[in-house]
Design a protein around this nucleic acid. Structure first.
Lengths: 178, 178
DNA sequence: CGCCTGGCTTTGGTTCTGCCAAGTCAGCGT
DNA sequence: ACGCTGACTTGGCAGAACCAAAGCCAGGCG
């Protein structure tokens, strides 16, 4: 009827509890709205406490809490700086761990642009700075093939052995909405 | 010092409030943990109420609420089915809107696999079913170039006119963590 | 008809996330 | 010495998200 279904050894979905799932773990770290939006502002170049609080439109208390958590989790680093005639303060910079989360936010933005935006394409277009063309997130395999959403397989890495399965392609044409 | 900063006309970040931001809008729809995890199970082939509730490990009440919301938002469709000797029930299937969110979850999973998993590579590996190679999420432009995280530009689509800017590449080698 | 089952809904309570307002604290400028 | 400012912290509270347990209801089966 629609898109993707598990097949093969892993089709007994109940045999592999999702407690170790990386999606769940990622959500433990950046699962709140304010954490995601603070990361967004970090990509847009925010560094200082006041910038984050104002641009994300959250209170000092929330900004302080999220910045501390994100720093502890390793997505941001905190380093002192001093402007002329000002006392020492701290600024927050993306670590590589934080930078590597960017594709997730871009994928979310791409999806929002497509389905939720007032204007087609969304309010902002990200481009490849070398050639000016708009960018998009997509999926490829290590061999370099483009992977359609219906061509995904799964392999479980149980400690030691391995089980393989597939996300079988099914009819993507039907059931566009209702 | 680290990775990415806004440059150009948009560097005055305060001039374009983020209220229309597609990331924010996407989070309004799938911003809760349970919504994300229900989508995960939908990709793994769950269709029925009880499957979602059990596999996501949430209560009936939450499952019912999220399934209703996701259906209303258009990510899932609800259709009747009947098994032999059973009464009519409803099952939930991914719409194309729901399917198109998959890259966002994959990006989150890829990040979690890299930074948060107990075992390297995470508990699950997704593969290209045609060739068996592991898949990854990445960014390309419409011209087909691979786009590194430091090569991103931004263009604001204000209603009518356009302003352009760039996310300037800066030294990704420094500041890996602290 | 009356029981049982699965899909929901309701009720009541806890935790999390956020707001607002007030307080602290370091250090620069006067 | 004093005040001011920016970066937090603290306290009190509303609302969302969740859980556990109980109730409800349609309909197939005895």
């Amino acid at each position: 009827m629609e898109s993707i279904t598990l097949r093969g050894k892993l089709s007994d979905r109940d045999s592999w509890p999702a407690t170790r799932c990386s999606i769940g773990k990622a959500l433990d770290v950046v699962g709140t709205r304010s954490a995601m939006l603070i990361m967004r502002e970090a990509y847009y170049g925010a560094h200082r406490f006041e910038e984050f609080a104002r641009r994300v439109n959250i209170t000092d208390a929330v900004a302080a809490a999220r910045l501390r958590e994100l720093t502890e989790a390793g997505l941001l680093s905190r380093s002192p700086y001093q402007e002329a005639g000002q006392r020492t303060r701290h600024e927050y910079h993306l670590t590589t761990m934080g930078t590597d989360l960017l594709p997730a936010l871009l994928a979310l933005m791409q999806w929002g642009d497509r389905y939720l935006a007032e204007q087609p394409g969304g309010p902002l277009t990200l481009t490849h700075v070398d050639c000016g063309e708009p960018i998009h997130v997509d999926i490829r395999c290590a061999a370099g093939h483009d992977v359609e959403l219906g061509e995904l397989g799964v392999r479980a890495n149980r400690r030691g052995r391995r089980a393989t399965s597939s996300l079988a392609p099914v009819d993507l044409s039907a059931n566009p909405r209702r």
